[in-house]
């Protein structure tokens, strides 16, 4: 009785706050290695919430904790008022999962993959038939219905995994790098489909390391690196806060950086330098541009700041494996 009451209270609490997923001080250790180091996040209902970060940041591990694929080491996690691992089965019923790797059944056709997967949710062919047809249409897979998985392109496989995640009409959809490795056409098709699904009131949790994807799809973002959350905000505010509206890239030798910074010292900006470029982040782009034109000594590029600038600034420019 008490357990039941606990679950119910928590449900009402999350309902009132309108957060469908809440995590506090979430930690995951694999042996001695801490992959997720105590993160907090609250995901509002019917929004698209993104986890942005370089390889190894802990994005997949975080997603896996949400869908009970890896155990939470410590901290608290609540999904629609349910808590893993005790409510594991109930949680899985309301989640649709698009894992990082396509784990489709290679021996089965497109259509059979969906039929067999719907059965795992307790849906018979009769119950799932209409939904399957609808999803095949929606993801433009109708023509491929009898094709086996190894014959599909990367984009088709990804769309099929998306269709598979929607068979049981889940409330929350978890997408772990939905478009990594796909060509631009395939990515745009998936983005359009996700945007139209967003209108149906489902909640999306997404990981990506594509900034354009995050900017386009996410209402709110966290930036993760090395198991920690560095920042949380809307894409727009992240840019404003860390970079300023404008970025000027100056192509320049290392020795000359000091002198140019001297020239620009009257203005407000932050900067960063790589081996061949100086990045100026600012709200006063036009004044700095004027100065640069006056100096007439450098090649430069003026553009709107992007999430990518924030990302590189906060996570550094060295390679990640």
């Amino acid at each position: 009785m008490r357990v039941y009451k606990g679950v119910k209270d928590r449900y009402q609490f999350t309902h009132k706050m309108n957060y469908i997923i809440q995590a506090q001080n979430l930690v995951k250790k694999y042996g001695h290695f801490e992959a997720v180091k105590g993160i907090d996040f609250n995901i509002p209902k019917a929004s698209c919430f993104g986890f942005l970060g370089p390889n190894g940041a802990g994005k997949t591990t975080t997603m896996s904790m949400l869908y009970c694929f890896v155990r939470v080491t410590s901290g608290s996690l609540s999904i629609a008022g349910l808590t893993p691992p005790s409510d594991e089965r109930e949680i899985k019923k309301i989640l649709g999962i698009v894992p990082q790797d396509n784990n489709l059944d290679p021996d089965l056709s497109v259509f059979e993959n969906l039929v067999v997967y719907a059965r795992y949710y307790g849906l018979s062919l009769k119950q799932s038939k209409n939904k399957i047809e609808e999803l095949l249409d929606f993801f433009e897979l109708g023509e491929k219905r009898n094709v086996r998985i190894p014959q599909l392109s990367g984009g088709m496989k990804r769309r099929l995994v998306l269709a598979r995640a929607l068979l049981h009409d889940p409330k929350i959809i978890i997408l772990d790098e939905p478009t990594t490795g796909l060509d631009p056409q395939a990515r745009h098709l998936i983005w359009e489909r996700l945007e139209s699904l967003k209108k149906t009131g489902k909640t999306f949790v997404l990981t990506t390391h594509y900034m354009d994807e995050a900017e386009r799809l996410c209402d709110e973002l966290v930036l993760m690196d090395q198991g920690k959350i560095l920042e949380q905000n809307t894409p727009h505010k992240l840019i404003e806060k860390h970079i300023g509206k404008e970025t000027i890239e100056i192509i320049i030798d290392n020795q000359k950086v000091d002198s140019i910074l001297d020239h620009l010292s009257p203005f407000k900006f932050t900067w960063e330098k790589t081996s061949a470029r100086l990045f100026i982040y600012t709200h006063e782009g036009h004044k700095i541009l004027e100065k640069l034109i006056q100096l007439n000594n450098f090649e430069f590029l003026h553009r709107r700041s992007s999430l990518e600038d924030v990302f590189l600034k906060l996570t550094g420019r060295e390679l990640r494996e």
């Binding site: 869908y67 694929f69 594991e88 089965r89 899985k92 019923k93 989640l95 999962i97 894992p99 790797d101 784990n103 489709l104 059944d105 290679p106 997967y117 795992y120 949710y121 307790g122």
Partner: peptide
Amino acid sequence: TQKTYDAIIATPIS
């Protein structure tokens, strides 16, 4: 090899 079971435990099957 196929990770079929990873796909299945994302559903209510244990």
